[in-house]
């Protein structure tokens, strides 16, 4: 297994959030405590994604998005990433495709830019007439393994298999690890879900349904993190509803070594978002109280093994 690069501090943005190299450098310049940045998922050919509205935020702590993987072409991404000037942070390139061959083709072009490659197996959004990656690949252990195998052949960088919470994710994770994945991403947005406007009697999102993120996602991806760590003891990048240092610590105790922030950046200026990342990192450090973070990764399992017969 290829170890993940040292991501210090162990906080990153979630793929599809912030998205572009120039936004990453703006965050870095503003003093964001993000040790790595993840690109928007790079696809094999240019596509605009769904029409607006692409987000809806009902008041229950859930945000739905139906962006559906807009991407410039892989060639244009190459030009963009040639220009990126991150000072200290690592770059993780997220990739997707319609089948294993397309994943491999994108990885071939992107490998030299990334300190790691994140494989998007779980996007629950689609443009009309498409199938979601979650349905076509991410819910199927054999097809997911084929993707990871082909990606593995194209890169010597660590490969993160990012799973859908709406899948038999331990089975998918097992085949991905056997196929050469170095780490698990736990996980993508949930669902998809639906929001209906009762006045116009129409689905609000132009894509009809949208992946669910924010606080509503946290207990679900936290459980995925916990179960994946228990089974594989592998490096885990966790995402889902991390808004405070306490949220981050929960994920660390469950087994995550890197924490992804997404929806918590909603409505925050670059300076406010950078301050949020500093607050989260400072809170984690105070909680650690001098202990190395590695000592706490998965600590909830040790507690469970010590005194809980359900572990």
């Amino acid at each position: 297994m290829i170890p993940l690069p040292r991501i210090d501090p162990p906080l990153i943005n979630a793929s599809g959030i912030l998205s572009y190299p120039e936004v990453f450098t703006a965050f870095e310049s503003a003093g964001a405590c993000l040790g790595g940045y993840v690109t928007k998922s790079v696809g094999p050919r240019e596509k605009p994604g769904n029409e607006n509205p692409v987000v809806v935020y009902p008041p229950e702590g859930a945000v739905l998005n139906s962006l559906a993987l807009p991407t410039q072409s892989a060639e244009d991404w190459e030009r963009d990433l040639e220009e990126i000037k991150l000072k200290n942070a690592k770059l993780i390139v997220s990739v997707y495709g319609g089948d294993a061959g397309e994943f491999a083709g994108v990885t071939r072009r992107m490998s030299r830019f990334g300190d790691a490659i994140e494989v998007n197996l779980g996007c629950p959004n689609k443009e009309p007439g498409e199938q979601t990656i979650m349905e076509s690949i991410g819910q199927n252990p054999a097809l997911s393994a084929e993707v990871i195998e082909r990606v593995r052949d194209e890169t010597d960088k660590p490969v993160i298999a990012k799973l859908s919470p709406n899948s038999d994710y331990l089975a998918v994770a097992e085949s991905c690890m056997n196929a050469g994945a170095d780490a698990l991403g736990c996980g993508n947005t949930l669902g998809p879900g639906l929001a209906v406007d009762i006045r116009s009697r129409a689905a609000i999102l132009a894509g009809t349904t949208g992946g669910i993120s924010g606080p509503a996602l946290k207990p679900i991806n936290l459980r995925m993190t916990y179960e994946a760590y228990a089974r594989f003891r592998c490096p885990i990048v966790a995402y889902g509803g991390i808004e405070t240092w306490e949220d981050a610590v929960e994920y660390i105790l469950a087994g995550a070594g890197v924490l992804g922030i997404g929806t918590a950046f909603m409505r925050k200026s670059t300076h406010e978002a950078a301050a949020l990342t500093r607050d989260i990192w400072e809170g984690i450090q105070e909680y650690l109280d001098g202990e190395p973070m590695s000592a706490l990764i998965g600590a909830a399992h040790r507690a469970a093994e010590g005194g809980d017969s359900h572990a």
């Binding site: 998205s19 936004v23 703006a26 994604g49 987000v55 929806t263 950046f265 909603m266």
Partner: peptide
């Protein structure tokens, strides 16, 4: 060009500033 308009998707970047929230 704006998509989410709440600082998440990064689509409205102008040299890294997200026009919708910055």
């Amino acid at each position: 060009y704006m998509k989410c308009a709440v600082g998440l998707c990064g689509q409205c970047t102008c040299s890294g500033w997200r026009v919708c929230t910055d």
